[in-house]
Design a binder for these strands. Sequence first.
DNA 1: CCTAAGATG
DNA 2: CATCGTAGG
Lengths: 327, 327
Amino acid sequence: MPPKRKPENNEEGNSKKKTKLSRKLAEKIQEEPKSLVVKDETEPQTSAAKGAAEQVGIDYSCDARNKHGNTFNVRITNWNVDGLRAWVKKEGLSFVDQEKPDIFCLQETKCSIAKLPKEIKDVKDYKMFWHNSNKEGYAGVGLFSRDEPLSVKYGLGNEEHDSEGRCITAEYEKFYVVSVYVPNAGRNLVTLPKRLEWNKIFKEFIKELDEKKPVIICGDMNVAHNEIDLTNPKTNTKNAGFTKEERDGMTDFLADGYVDTFRQLYPDKTGAYTFWSYMRQARSKNIGWRLDYFILSNRIADNVCDNIIRSEVFGSDHCPITLFINI
Amino acid sequence: MPPKRKPENNEEGNSKKKTKLSRKLAEKIQEEPKSLVVKDETEPQTSAAKGAAEQVGIDYSCDARNKHGNTFNVRITNWNVDGLRAWVKKEGLSFVDQEKPDIFCLQETKCSIAKLPKEIKDVKDYKMFWHNSNKEGYAGVGLFSRDEPLSVKYGLGNEEHDSEGRCITAEYEKFYVVSVYVPNAGRNLVTLPKRLEWNKIFKEFIKELDEKKPVIICGDMNVAHNEIDLTNPKTNTKNAGFTKEERDGMTDFLADGYVDTFRQLYPDKTGAYTFWSYMRQARSKNIGWRLDYFILSNRIADNVCDNIIRSEVFGSDHCPITLFINI
DNA sequence: CCTAAGATG
DNA sequence: CATCGTAGG
């Protein structure tokens, strides 16, 4: 897959101050629901190409080189958006416009195709694919692709799980990309059995893909793998996302021949999370969990240039993560 | 009941410009749910006694005289608040603080006592009484009284209707005040039978009160009595609030010895509504219904000084109405 | 188009 | 403490 857009490689010498534009953008007026989003009129409107990136102050460039000495030629971003419609109102799309990934995977869209907001339908730069739950407003995943994939597959071939809209597989020349939303084990672990059942099926599904081409799994795996992956490991061992069963599930999966790219790149990095409860101002205190991952077939692990957690970007209780890879 | 506060009788020569403060006050910040209400900091904070009335530009005074030539000594305000908690966030209480009624009746509080917001618990000027539905978030009425009533009665003595929290009766020396929320006939008139059943029971209930002392009924009667009482009478004859049955119910009730004070005072006044659907910007186009009334025993009708519809006051799909009476 | 509760996270 | 669908208006 030839990238349509050359990597920037810091060619613009961006400033790196990290403001929280999304917070500003999220202001809404009670009495005027039609214009929920207040655009900051004090900022001059520059061309889309010039980039909101500069305005926002996030550096979207990447000059990191992989083990082979190459800079990236494919950028993949993943985000559990926690409700596509709310996310659109919070200017989620302007992030996509700034990050400009080649492939964008979303989870928890909670939106049937009939109810997609106009702003989504108006997106021109991407082909879009959706796998929705039969249950309105629940789960659902999406995949945006700048290039047309060779094929797109919905679900795992398991009737029960596929009815919940949790998996899209896009095939490209040299790899598969999987946008996945792993079942949450639920309050009091009521759905832990379903989750463990999913783990088996998903592992088998990925194994079959991996036998053909290397796989890039992007998604909300709904587990913090190790103690380093959440703020409060001690108090969460009985809670969804950090039970022994779920953690072992991840260990077991990786043992099949995959790598958690973020942890491979940053084995000792603490405080690196992708999810924070909306409760108790967890995010501002960085009381979080790393639930969102890029998991790659071992044989392409050395192709990875970087894996960035965009924790400054708001719009959901999860933040986006971006993979830079040369492949 | 001696009023604690003297009527102003225009003594301050208030300005009458009518701004829409509530709209301003209702602005909220998505990311800061703890401070939903944005106070207008450009307005200097004057003392509470000086009164927000002047700031807002609504003239809360009344110098009208009744048939006996007297100005009012009791002010009663009624408001269907459409959700007490939302209404509090929209600064509903600041209206009460400005209007300063002796008695304030509310309908559709949709809030059990356990969930009353702090701002309500903090109110010092009134004794408060609540009659709530067994069904959370549904119906519910309240009554605030500056003076302690001689007695307070909840409901009509009918088990089914009383389980929905629709009626509070406060007894004073010279009269009863009833805060009432009459059942809506529902979409496709599904609950019209219940409503007509209510009418019978309510009429009987009021009759018994009226035999002891004159009655001041305040509330959402959920009917536009005559064609003059809604914008579109022709197209609403089959809709809840303007069916023949509901209209006849009001006619029948009044025939028992009561008067709709607003219509008595202003028999030909058009465009006088107390409710506007949130849909289709009905309020800004004044496409509305007069559903909220003061209905008084005939023998005190001539005590009424005025009945004002505060259509400039926002915070609900209904607006407040205020009765000025000397009694 | 609003409110609220309830399910889910 | 957010999202959503639904009931109720």
